[in-house]
Design a protein around this nucleic acid. Sequence first.
DNA 1: CAAATTTTTTGGTATGATCAAATCTAACAC
DNA 2: GTGTTAGATTTGATCATACCAAAAAATTTG
Lengths: 235, 235
Amino acid sequence: MASQDGVGRAADPVVRSIEEDIHSGELTDGQPLPTERHLMDKFGVSRTVVREAMRLLSSRGLVEARPRHRPVVRKPGFDTAVDVAGSIVSHMLSLPGGVKNLFDTRIMIEAALVRQAATHADKQSIVALKAALEANEAAVADSELFYQTDMRFHAVLYDIPKNPVLPAIHKAFTTWLAPHWSQMPRLPDRNRENYRAHKAIFEAILMRDPDSAEAALRDHLEAAWSQVRATFGDI
Amino acid sequence: MASQDGVGRAADPVVRSIEEDIHSGELTDGQPLPTERHLMDKFGVSRTVVREAMRLLSSRGLVEARPRHRPVVRKPGFDTAVDVAGSIVSHMLSLPGGVKNLFDTRIMIEAALVRQAATHADKQSIVALKAALEANEAAVADSELFYQTDMRFHAVLYDIPKNPVLPAIHKAFTTWLAPHWSQMPRLPDRNRENYRAHKAIFEAILMRDPDSAEAALRDHLEAAWSQVRATFGDI
DNA sequence: CAAATTTTTTGGTATGATCAAATCTAACAC
DNA sequence: GTGTTAGATTTGATCATACCAAAAAATTTG
């Protein structure tokens, strides 16, 4: 709830104006904003306020403010929201059970995805999934590459419904869970096991069998979780 | 992606320190932060930097900075992340298809939820769901109350897995989609129709039949979507 | 014309001042 | 003793100015 407190900040009008310009396309993606000194002229405020406005905009993901550079306009996508929420989530992941809760959510969503894939995936998606699976198989010996193809395989699942929200969710899961994953020991045996799990999922989708697909996916991710648990203990 | 650019901001150490204090419980929830002048003393930086740090913290949801008040520590929950991401998402919802994509995501997730409810819901959850359903029925004549009990019914679905991430997701959906929903005409007939849909979902869960539950839920939400569409046209 | 160098611009930070809202303090009435 | 209120003080918000170092632009140089 955005609680208004009677008085607004002086930076507010500046933010709103720039927000509108971005929204209306006046300021387009990648374009640098006017200089701070120019903006203080334009809005008749001090530089303090201009900088305050910049920071508000950047916290909303509308501009990207690299330290000593001109702020750059950035029209947000769903994944920008993930970026912004990231720092908060990472705080919560350190709470007891935080990672587990997030991982369970991932299992639930991917279970839904594979069901959807099994019932509705079009030919093109199946092809993409098959390609990802083969790349995964080819990478069994190279753990780093396997990690990437593993992520890619799951990413394809999120692409299947052709809903841009879902890839953003996938990005959220990977970036938020990665710290706990990337420290895990990588073993070819384990890679092979994971590849087989992917293959089982793929085949269930191919057979248009949502129940098997979901079961295979759950097996896979729950096994992955117990691996994590074995590595880190209770988290 | 948190792109590091060689040089860090001077506010960074301040942010990190306070972040840690909040995290470690040194600064507890609801407690006001030290004054700006005190902080500049403590960290040996100018007030500019202290204020910059405050802005960063508040953009991360770790402190709540009401305009003329002392910033207040706020230990973030998953729903804080929703708050922070909110302004971005609302920007994107105005893009063509934005609302539809979000709504489709909601359908997918709730479909997964009712499946889960049908297979794993414990007795207590069933009771809660039944209570929500009855409240919903009792409110058919009062559209405003019906709206609330409707939301409540769905909220119970998100509570069933006892995973705090899910209620946060529900909050996200409701707050982000509410603007489009709340303008809809409320009619007792429509309420009754929605109640019947809820009842069908509940009964399928009671029968431990995930397929029927999912089907009933999809019917329900897709009908709701076509109502929205009939009201607003293509969005 | 391209590369290196100088100049100008611009963002980051520090200081100090002013103002109004909050907060604290103390006098005061009941 | 308690609650209220007027006054003093603190404190956040904003402004103005200055300085520095990095970036960008302009200029010289090979």
